[in-house]
């Protein structure tokens, strides 16, 4: 965030008012991640030329869509200095509830709303226990993580459920805007909306304020509890939305569907430049983090590296991202 030092001491009254920081300096670390993503892709393309085909780009975007949306929700919580471990379970439970509702004759829309309700309810429970009761976010979301995960098994006795509704796939793969599949559209809408809220809406600045210095924010009259509550509801709802998108894509709901996503989402947010101690991070960064994780998985598969190495490679990517972040702020 350093711009050229324009001194503002009383002496230089003639100095012109400083310009707002350029987009390049605001999004410097995001640019670094974007470049890293491109480098990774090109690197994979060196071994497997098809990696750089439009078909593979489509694969990557489709595979990353749920993670992108989930990461955006987790980002908000992490900016407020919290953590949400329940998103993966909410993701799974959403799918189960939606598929179950459809199997019981609900329309696509009402079943989806029921699914979305899972995220809203669990997000609210997280928010209420954290802000009203004052329990630690890690503990609270660990509880809801476990409860939602087990509920995902309970609702159908552990069986996976197929979706037979003929048009439901349109939600993910249809095109409200011709030429732009919905899953990409949703990712774009959420990213732009969230980036706008975080930068240009007062309530968005509150997320940072609360994560940065909760006591100072409280004394400034910022509604700390409401802000934190909202963060968990947003996070839960986004996780649910991601769950719906996946069900719509594979037309199947599985109780373990989201199990690996929670850590990936947190990793995406961290790669995207957010600090787990709160107060920093951006929507664009989180999206790029999610894309990077997906590109790594894609690359490992394409090259044919044993997929057990994926975790190590992702871990290395997080380390590099965090180190870059650390040294660029020195």
């Amino acid at each position: 965030m350093t711009t050229k030092a324009t001194s503002m001491t009383s002496n230089d009254k003639t100095a012109p008012p400083p310009k707002s920081p350029s987009l390049l300096s605001v999004y410097r670390s995001e640019l670094a991640i974007a470049i890293a993503c491109v480098v990774l892709l090109v690197g994979v393309g060196f071994f497997v030329p098809a990696a750089l085909s439009s078909g593979n780009f489509a694969n990557i975007l489709q595979a990353s869509a749920p993670l992108v949306i989930m990461s955006l929700g987790v980002l908000i919580v992490i900016i407020t200095g919290g953590i949400d471990l329940s998103v993966g379970s909410i993701f799974s439970l959403t799918g189960m509830v939606t598929a179950l509702a459809m199997a019981n004759g609900f329309s696509d829309i009402s079943a989806s709303l029921a699914g979305l309700g899972v995220g809203i309810v669990f997000g609210s429970i997280n928010g209420a226990l954290i802000t009203l009761v004052g329990l630690a976010p890690f503990v609270v979301t660990l509880i809801t993580y476990a409860v939602a995960a087990s509920l995902a098994f309970i609702v159908t006795n552990g069986r996976s459920l197929g979706v037979n509704s003929p048009d439901y796939w349109l939600f993910n793969s249809g095109e409200f805007i011709p030429g732009l599949p919905n899953f990409i559209l949703f990712c774009l809408i959420f990213t732009v909306a969230l980036e706008f809220v975080l930068r240009k809406v007062t309530a968005g600045r509150w997320f940072y304020s609360v994560g940065s210095s909760p006591m100072a924010a409280y004394l400034l009259g910022i509604p700390v509890k409401r802000t934190r509550f909202a963060a968990y509801v947003i996070s839960g709802t986004m996780a649910s939305f991601a769950g719906l998108l996946t069900v719509s894509y594979i037309l199947n709901a599985e109780a373990t569907a989201g199990a690996s996503l929670m850590l990936q989402a947190i990793a995406a947010v961290v790669i995207g430049g957010a600090s787990l101690s709160g107060g920093s991070g951006s929507a664009i960064g989180a999206v790029l983090g999610a894309l990077m994780i997906t590109i790594i998985q894609n690359g490992v598969n394409l090259i044919g590296i044993n997929s057990f190495w994926q975790g190590s490679v992702t871990g290395l990517a997080i380390l590099v991202a965090v180190l870059i972040d650390r040294f660029s702020h020195r």
């Binding site: 809406v201 007062t202 968005g204 304020s209 400034l220 910022i222 600090s275």
Partner: peptide, 23 residues
């Protein structure tokens, strides 16, 4: 507010007091 730029620090109170919704 240690992680927010000076401009946000200075204006935080005004935004609350005057109920500003947008930056």
């Amino acid at each position: 507010l240690s992680q927010l730029p000076i401009v946000d620090n200075v204006l935080a109170s005004r935004r609350v007091r005057e109920g500003r919704h947008l930056v």
